[in-house]
Simulated assay, not measured.
Amino acid sequence: MNEMVKLIEQFELKELFNKSRLKGVRFFKSSSHIPRSPLLYDPGIFIVAQGRKIGHLGERSFQYDPNNYLVTSVPIPFECETFADADAPFLGLYVDIDMPVLHELMGLLGQSRVAASVRIRDIPKGVAPAEMDAAMHDAVIRLLKCLHSEADALVLGPGLIREIIYRALCGTQASSLYALAAQDGSFARVSKTLHLIHRECSRKLDVDQLASVAGMSASTFHRAFKEITSESPIQYLKKVRLNKARDLIEREHMKVYIAADKVGYESSSQFSRDFKRFFGVSPAEMMRGAR
Rank of each mutant, 00 (worst) to 15 (best):
M1P: 02
V5Y: 00
V5S: 01
K6T: 00
I8Q: 02
Q10I: 01
Q10H: 06
F11M: 09
L13S: 05
E15P: 02
L16F: 13
F17I: 00
S20F: 00
S30H: 00
S32H: 09
H33R: 10
P38A: 07
Y41H: 15
F46A: 12
I47G: 02
Q50F: 02
Q50C: 04
R52Y: 13
G55P: 02
H56N: 11
G58W: 07
G58N: 09
G58P: 09
S61Q: 14
P66F: 04
N68T: 07
V71K: 06
I76K: 03
F78W: 14
E81K: 10
T82H: 08
A86V: 12
F90V: 08
I97W: 02
D98S: 15
D98Q: 14
M99E: 15
L102A: 09
H103A: 10
M106A: 13
S112T: 13
V114E: 14
V114D: 06
A115P: 00
A116L: 15
A116N: 15
V118M: 07
V118Y: 03
V118T: 10
I120T: 10
I123C: 01
P124N: 10
G126C: 03
M132G: 07
M132T: 13
D133L: 01
D133P: 01
D133E: 09
A139R: 13
K145E: 15
C146T: 14
S149L: 04
S149V: 04
A151W: 04
L154W: 04
V155K: 10
V155I: 15
I161G: 09
R167N: 12
G171M: 06
G171D: 06
T172G: 13
S175T: 07
Y178M: 11
Y178Q: 03
A179H: 08
Q183R: 14
Q183Y: 09
R189S: 14
R189A: 14
V190P: 08
K192E: 13
K192Y: 04
K192L: 12
K192C: 05
T193D: 04
L194K: 10
H195Y: 14
H198K: 09
H198C: 06
R199Q: 08
E200N: 14
R203F: 15
R203Q: 15
R203Y: 15
K204G: 11
L205C: 06
Q209T: 14
L210D: 05
V213N: 00
G215M: 12
F225S: 05
T229A: 09
E231D: 13
P233I: 02
I234K: 12
Q235N: 15
Y236R: 05
Y236I: 06
L237V: 11
K238H: 03
K239C: 11
L242N: 05
K244Q: 11
A245H: 04
D247Y: 11
E250I: 13
H253D: 06
K255Y: 12
K255P: 07
Y257C: 07
I258G: 01
I258C: 04
A259T: 05
S267V: 00
S267I: 00
S268I: 00
S268C: 01
S269L: 06
F271L: 03
S272K: 08
R273S: 03
F278T: 05
V281T: 05
P283W: 00
M286K: 10
G289E: 04
A290T: 01
A290D: 01
